[in-house]
């Protein structure tokens, strides 16, 4: 069944702050096998002009996707999470995420479409730092496959 179009534009409450730790960034960089010293060595990061180690570009997804859970699990929206696959992902960066950041995410439903029986949901996650400055915007397209195809 097609999702309710009236949810387009709905914004969910900002998440509690997520504090970005140096060792969490290191763990992520090691998990993707990326030895770039900007992720692990504060001196190397400073040499590039950053106040502390920065996170790899896709690190922030862990935070934005958790926030998108508010949308996905909204009982009023009624998305069937068992049929959801990740279609597209995009990030627009104002600056890199860095150690010491306290980030909150505000999720908004940008669009709801029905394509060949699939529900296609575009969720925007705006990530702000403790000063309220925008750090990165994540655009996540989720596709709930038609039940008969599952």
């Amino acid at each position: 069944m097609a999702l309710d179009q009236s949810f387009v534009g709905r914004t969910y409450p900002a998440t509690d702050p997520y504090e970005v730790g140096r060792e969490k960034i290191r763990e992520f960089a090691e998990a993707v096998g990326d030895a770039n010293p900007a992720y692990t060595d504060p001196e190397a990061a400073r040499a590039l002009g950053h106040p502390d180690v920065i996170a790899p570009p896709t690190f922030v997804f862990a935070i934005t996707f958790k926030a998108a859970g508010q949308v996905v699990q909204d009982p009023q929206l009624g998305l069937d999470y068992d049929r959801v696959v990740h279609g597209d992902q995009r990030f627009e960066y104002v600056r890199p995420v860095r150690a010491g950041d306290r980030l909150t995410v505000t999720s908004t439903i940008d669009s709801i479409k029905s394509l060949a029986g699939n529900d296609v949901l575009l969720v925007r996650g705006e990530v702000h730092d403790a000063d309220g400055e925008l750090v990165v915007t994540a655009h996540t397209k989720l596709v709930a496959r038609a039940a008969e195809e599952a």
């Binding site: 990326d34 770039n36 590039l48 790899p56 570009p57 995009r90 990030f91 960066y93 600056r95």
Partner: peptide, 23 residues
């Protein structure tokens, strides 16, 4: 997605040079 962008970040010198990335 994380692996693919390494081709760009390794090339650019500073990972923060990436201002937009989508797949």
């Amino acid at each position: 997605m994380a692996e693919a962008i390494r081709v760009v970040t390794d090339w650019a010198g500073d990972p923060a040079a990436v201002v937009d990335y989508g797949v």
